[in-house]
Design a protein around this nucleic acid. Structure first.
Lengths: 132, 132
DNA sequence: CTGCAGATTGACGTTCACGTAAACGTAATG
DNA sequence: CATTACGTTTACGTGAACGTCAATCTGCAG
């Protein structure tokens, strides 16, 4: 009767603990229409899919995306639409996101280089102080 | 009497135009203590160094850093301190930033992969609709 | 049954990152 | 000289992303 390795459902508290956020935050994402957990009575019950969505939102956040941008990302996982025009619009958004990521990647590379230089100056300053 | 290629000073409007932000934003960054432009009378005069700082702030923004985090990044460029302890603390922060960037880099890689998959599903859906 | 931990729904508060507007100075231009 | 363009400070407004608190409702251990 151990806990199953692959849980199919999670409580709001479990998810909050797992991702290091508060339950308020999770409920807020639901208010924003990004999560639709099932209910056991009034209590929210989160599926593995809900967990994945939450993960996507948080990763988006780490990358500096707004919640509505993250929602776009989530929507890309459900080509539920059967409207060609909508799907093409989605495809465009995917390309836009990809380009945004490329820009970020570039920023990161530049910033890493600059951190390297900053570190060198730092180390040099330490050496200088040691000799003085 | 042409404009010099390397300007030593810039007006607030020039910078705003160059970076696609408003003058209000630039003044706000000054309020936050991240820029200290010289003054010609009351008018702000920005040096090339100020311009670089602004660039750093905006790059930080694109990477999802808060303004105070960006300020930390800026501080790394001026090992003005001659206090060994402070320099070492700075060095630590540089390492922390580097690790944060690594996490971001990882997030980006994952997200790119997921965008690839989303695109595939998208294309598949389009094909499907074409045959129907 | 009692009590208490943990869930829920409002509703209001807060911080960040600016926007917006008012009131004013200054310099060039027609 | 009047207008236009740009600059300044001061102050209040705003949207996003939650925090906090109160009131209420479960479920269950003792």
């Amino acid at each position: 009767m151990n806990a199953p390795i692959f849980q199919r459902s999670h409580s709001i508290r479990d998810l909050a603990r797992e991702f290091g956020i508060t339950t308020r935050t999770i409920r807020f994402y639901e208010e924003a229409g990004m999560l639709n957990p099932a209910r056991d009575g009034t209590t929210r019950v989160y599926s593995d899919q809900d967990r994945v969505k939450l993960k996507l939102i948080l990763r988006g956040k780490r990358l500096g995306f707004s919640l509505s941008e993250s929602r776009e990302l989530i929507d890309m996982y459900e080509p539920s639409s059967n409207n060609l025009k909508q799907i093409k619009a989605l495809h465009d958004k995917i390309e836009q996101r990809r380009e945004a990521l490329q820009r970020q990647l570039n920023d990161i590379r530049i910033m890493e280089k600059e951190l390297d230089e900053a570190e060198e100056r730092c180390i040099a300053a330490i050496q200088e102080l040691k000799r003085a």
